[in-house]
Design a protein around this nucleic acid. Structure first.
Length: 660
RNA sequence: GCCGGCUUAGCUCAGCUGGUAGAGCAUCUGAUUUGUAAUCAGAGGGUCACGGGUUCGAGUCCUGUAGCCGGCACCA
């Protein structure tokens, strides 16, 4: 007999060899029906796999997150089986579960087409209807390799060969006459897979994620416990698409991109640049209040400078190189660069220039920490496939700063930085910030004691700011550990925004030093840090976060004064707008010959936070009718009241705080 | 950079199996002077991304290039 403890703490006895399904059946018929798998002593377990002794058993259904994961994993297997039945020349590789679904990578000469999805989905449904039992088998490693090779599945054979230690057994799951290497667990049979799945897209993916390997064909799918959840998911995707910053950028006339004229660079329009200016002004105030000094450094620097910093050797491919010579002035004459022309490079980052500023003149320990900030415009020649809207561009402006300090100041500076960052993000409305701490890589500069201190310092800093933090062991830069602060776009893609990196190497390479209290020359430590990351990316994320409806302090146009008829209220509308501008608001007038319905609709779609409607009545009584974006009521105020309350409302969050 | 897809008016898109382009919105003009999400009418606007080919004839078929989109790789 074995004793099973259920999640509620109750204990039951079963025959030896009983499975979780027996446990479920003994509890209730309906539970047995809903059961997908089990958790045995915290480990996922097939429903019909016999228990191996006394255990804690929890039955997993599609209500559990683990259940949904099982469904998606099985959907991947069913997809693979379907594809192989339809296309016997396709080889299977891997097919994991991802957020909202799964994918499967196939090797096949001929490209798949999304036109074939319908056929594949139909075959998948057939496999579900066939209700093949999914059977777990334990195979010997060498036998498994031989078998997968025999049936022509070279990728599978290679996976087994590479990841399974010699002598260890592997598990194979069979459904019908199809089988796959898999750790499991799985549903008891294919009939248990809800048909709430859908193939979503095709993509290329390198075998084992290495660009030197051949490219496989990846099929992405989504799978849910029921039709309703699937529908909701698809609806969410549709809604998210409407928030795409590229779409809204055009609709709200914020910016445009032109891949022909300037691939990867943004043409900011008045509306978009107004948002930029508000953000920049806000950041300046925050930096000024936090002991930073703003500088401006050269866009182009001599290649010699980049050689010294080490970028020329390692990152030259990503830099824009500009030969320093005077080309022939005549039209039609082909330009040839003289061989002895000096080379310059557009800066891909600001650090070396900031070190130059630090180095000019003598620095004393009394000057530290020295915090040099710059809205630095950088150029990086990114691979063309990497460019994405305004999120990943080739010209971008970092809200960059470098803190030069003594080693014993690192922790305090890091804490201050994390607190500042947290407060800034909160002002922009971001509550959830993903923080990653990347620690020492295998190949690194500096001794372990220094790394210990540096890593502990960064950890202490995130803790002090009250931010949860995930460790990424081995992911740090070779010169120091780093913190990354990530935000998520409308469809769940994660973007790095803020960063804090410790650097002992660059001050050394470029010979930065200060005079210590004992008169000796010392190396400062350098903290690279950015809060927004890049203006472009951050604005892109803001657009998606707010679906284009910026909070009033950021909105390009804060108030539109719409006249009901030009004859009756046109000049009063001008007067109201002038007063609003005097009160510091960004206001526009709409006295076009259009109906008020039309104007309200248009400015609402342009996501203007406040529409001030004025007609004959308002002009007579010197009032305004305010209509807020997203509500259809109106608020009638005297002009004076409106000016005071709107000016207060439109104040940036930091200035609002300073008031109270 | 790699795999796949896409590219028709300022924008969103039609254009069947090849017979030299069409709608809505926007723009302009006129009428209307309007009370909270589209007033009516008229007009202008396209080398169908670009280059080459097949064909009597190409937006449509083939091919090359570029850009964009979705992933992958990259992201100091």
């Amino acid at each position: 007999m074995i004793q099973v403890t259920l999640p509620d703490g109750s204990k039951r006895e079963y025959q030896d060899g009983a499975s979780p399904l027996d446990v479920a059946e003994s509890i209730s018929k309906s539970l047995a029906k809903k059961a997908l798998a089990a958790k045995v002593d915290g480990q996922m377990w097939d429903l019909v796999r016999p228990l191996e002794g006394d255990a804690n058993v929890a039955i997993i259904t599609d209500r559990d997150p683990e259940g949904l994961e099982l469904i998606r994993h099985d959907a991947a297997h069913v997809l693979a089986q379907a594809v192989q039945e339809l296309y016997p020349d396709a080889q299977v590789t891997i097919g994991p579960v991802i957020d909202d679904g799964f994918y499967y990578d196939f090797a096949r000469k001929e490209p798949f087409s999304t036109d074939e999805f319908e056929k594949i989905e139909a075959k998948m449904r057939e496999i579900v209807d066939a209700d093949y039992p999914i059977i777990r088998e334990v195979w010997d490693k060498d036998a498994a390799i031989a078998e997968f090779k025999r049936i022509g599945e070279d990728y599978k054979a290679q996976i087994i060969d590479d990841i399974i230690p010699p002598g260890e057994a592997i598990t194979v799951y069979k459904q019908g006459n199809w089988f796959d290497l898999c750790r499991g667990p799985h549903l008891p049979s294919t009939g248990k897979l809800p048909k709430a799945f859908k193939l979503m897209k095709l993509a290329g993916a390198y075998w084992r994620g290495d660009h030197r390997n051949e490219m496989l064909q990846r099929m992405y799918g989504t799978a849910w416990a029921n039709e309703k959840d699937l529908k909701e998911h698809l609806h969410r995707l549709e809604e998210a698409e409407k928030r795409d910053h590229r779409k809204l950028g055009a609709q709200l006339d914020l910016f445009h991109l032109d891949g022909m004229a300037a691939a990867g660079s943004v043409f900011w329009h008045p509306n978009g640049f107004q948002v930029w200016r508000q953000i920049e002004a806000y950041m300046r105030r925050r930096l000024d209040a936090s002991g930073y000094e703003e500088i401006k450094t050269p866009q182009l620097m001599d290649s010699v400078q980049w050689e010294k910093s080490g970028h020329w050797g390692k990152y030259r491919e990503n830099m824009f190189i500009v030969p320093d010579f005077i080309p022939a002035g005549d039209e039609g004459v082909e330009i040839s660069v003289p061989e002895d022309a000096k080379l310059m490079a557009l800066k891909p980052m600001n650090c070396p220039a900031h070190v130059e500023v630090f180095k000019s003149g003598q620095k004393s320990y009394r000057d530290l920490p020295l915090r040099l900030a710059e809205f630095g415009c950088c150029h990086r020649n990114e691979p063309h496939g990497a460019i994405h809207g305004i999120m990943r561009v080739r010209q971008f402006t970092q809200d960059d700063a470098h803190i030069f300090c003594r080693e014993d100041q690192i922790v305090e500076e890091s804490i201050q930085f994390c607190r500042l960052l947290e407060s800034v993000y909160r002002d922009f409305g971001f509550e959830k910030i993903a923080v990653k701490l990347s620690t020492r890589p295998d190949v690194r500069a500096g001794d372990d004691a220094t790394w210990d201190r540096a890593e502990a310092g960064l950890k202490a800093a995130v803790d002090a700011a009250g931010l949860p933090c995930e460790l990424l062991p081995g992911e740090g830069a070779f010169y120091g550990p780093k913190l990354e602060f990530q935000l998520t776009d409308a469809i769940g893609r994660v973007w790095q925004c803020g960063t804090l990196q410790l650097d002992y190497v660059l001050p050394e390479r470029l010979g930065a030093e200060y005079i210590a209290s004992d008169g000796s020359k010392q190396r400062p430590v350098m903290l690279h840090r950015a809060i927004l990351g890049s203006m472009e990316r951050f604005i892109g994320i803001l657009i998606e976060e707010f679906a284009g409806a910026f909070p009033i302090w950021l909105a390009p146009v804060q108030v539109v004064v719409a006249a009901i008829s030009d004859d009756a209220a046109g000049s009063y509308a001008e007067e109201v707008a002038a007063e609003l501008r005097k009160a510091g608001l960004r206001a526009e007038v709409d006295r076009r010959n259009e109906t008020i319905n039309y104007k309200v609709r248009e400015h609402s779609m342009q996501k203007v936070p406040v529409i001030a409607v004025v007609g004959a009545r308002e002009a007579d009584e010197r009032k305004v009718a305010l209509r807020r974006l997203g509500s259809n009521g109106q608020q009638i105020l005297s002009l004076e009241e409106a000016l005071i309350s709107l000016a207060e409302e439109a104040l940036p969050p930091d200035l609002k705080r300073a008031r109270s």
